[in-house]
Every structure is written in C-alpha cells, then in structure tokens.
Design a protein around this nucleic acid. Sequence first.
DNA 1: GATTCGTGGAG
DNA 2: TCTCCAAGAAT
Length: 321
Amino acid sequence: MQKTTLTPAPADLHRLHTQITHWFDVHGRDLPWRRPEAGAWGVMVSEYMLQQTPVVRVLPVWHEWMERWPTPADLAAEPSGEALRAWGKLGYPRRALRLHAAAQRIVEDHDGEVPGSFDELISLPGVGDYTAAAIACFAFGAPETVVDTNIRRVHARAITGNALPEPSYTAAEARLAAALMPPRDAADPRLPGPWGEYDDGALACRWNAAVMELGALVCTARNPKCDACPVASSCAWIEAGQPAPHYTPKGQPWAGTDRQVRGAFMAVLRGADAPLGRDELVAADVVLATDAKADQLERCLASLLADGLAHEGAHGISLPH
DNA sequence: GATTCGTGGAG
DNA sequence: TCTCCAAGAAT
C-alpha cells in the first residue's frame, strides 16, 4: 500500500521551478566541476570528494587531482597509496581508495571512459544512489532524480513543512523528489543562464543543481536565510510558523574514538617517505596526542591494514603500493 | 536498519 | 569551549 504523495498543483510546481532555477542562474556558484571542460571524470572526482565534505575544502584538492590525473587511466596507473596521499586531509580516506579502484574498473571494463548510465555507475566502488544519479545527470545530462542532504532539507521545509528531514531517507521522500522533477517536455526548452543555454534534456539537471544549491546557500541546516529565499512566500515550513525539529540530532563523538586514532595514523603515513616500524608509528606526536592505549592502537592499526589503507611489508608500515 | 568511517570551520 | 554538520557509502 503506497501512500499518496503530497505534491503541488502543476501551476504551483511550474512557479516553484521558475523561482528556484532563476535564483540559481543569478546566485549559483561558478564551481569548476560545473563547467563543461571538467568532463565526466572531473564531475566524478568532485562527487567522491564532496561526500560528507564541504565545497571549500574540496576545491584545492580537486584542482590538484585534475592536473595530476586528467583521466581515469592516469589515476589507475598509480599505486593506491598515491591517491591516499593526494587525498590529504579531506577525511574518510577510504573514498580515495574506492575512487582509485573505480578508475581501474573504468579502464578495465569501460575502455577508460566514465560510464554514463545509472546502473553502470552504481556498480562502481564508492558509488551509491546519490553519486550515480549525480554523475549521470551532471556529467551526461541524464534526467535522473538527484537527492542529497541539501535537497532533502529543501523538500522537508518548502513542501512538507518540517524543519529538517528525518534521519533516514524514506520512500515517501523519494516519491516526492521524483514528483517534483520538471516535466520532460517543458514548453520553454532553452533558457539562457550564466553557464550557457540549457536544452530540454538538461532541465532536470538544472533543477537538481538549483535545489541543491538553494539548500547549500540559503536553506541551510542552521540559520536558514529565509529573507533571501526565492520560495519563502510559499514555504510550508514558514507557513507553519517555522516549528523546531521534533527530534534531537545525535552528536558525532570524536575524542577517544577509533576514527580519531585511525586518522592520526593516516596523517603520519601520508607524511612519511619510507616505511615506519610500529614503534615509530605509535611514537609519532599526532598519535601520542590521541592518548590512546595500546589495545586501541593495535586495533586501529590492524583495521587500517585490513581496509587496505595501510600496508605492512618487510621494512615496516606505509601507504599501500 | 543502525553503525562506522575523517576533518575542520562556524556559531 | 563545545556542538553541529558538510554533494554518502558500505556493512
């Protein structure tokens, strides 16, 4: 039994599209991976880096990667440890490992070209529903429904009337996002914008990017800038009196966690130009600063080796080859 | 479905 | 200072 999805009437939906996409044309950021010269590989690299990581932190690293590895084959030819080192402090270094593995798969299975279909993309390591839809849409113009945390928040407020989306992505949200997509045969197929003209097939991509950008710049999680919002006059959350979220977000503990200790180990390995003994590794300042006991240090080191984020050879531990 | 997985800036 | 959280994916 599927519940009916609450969606605006066609006229209201059209107004919503017009308001948000126009706002995007005026206020959207000129991010390098949105330029045509970025190519599918540039889009793909950006999507991996942007998973749970702010744009401002991704920008310099993305430029380094695109200069050093302009194609999937260029990255695939390097040891995975080079990808990890170049990943720097973006966080979640397994993303670098997965991107490296995906590049190798692209060389082996796709003749070195980033595949353009959702099904091919989602089969790559590190690509889930969001990333597959985003690459297919932003790099190839496929009319996929893209749903990220920004888009979920905009929908929760503007349409549903809640301060924040539920912690877990629901089927109702997916139906809503699909229902909000612009019609495939829109009457106004070519609209001028700062990045060129959008043809009919790119309407969906423009919509996806626009809603995402609205969530990132205006409809933010904390202190939303409703005064600058193009759809404030019809926002269900504002109409409801901007009620507070009805759940308390769970904190992300950090001090003393394995994540902190693993991160400290990885920072040492990134900076080392030769393998290190376990004693050297544990004695490093950043590791000592975690104040971790011997059992936790051992457990974290073992997990890094098991994850392929580190490699132990005859001369010690280093980034993988 | 709940957990785990880095990092650092903003308020 | 401390809490929140930022274009998620895999298990």
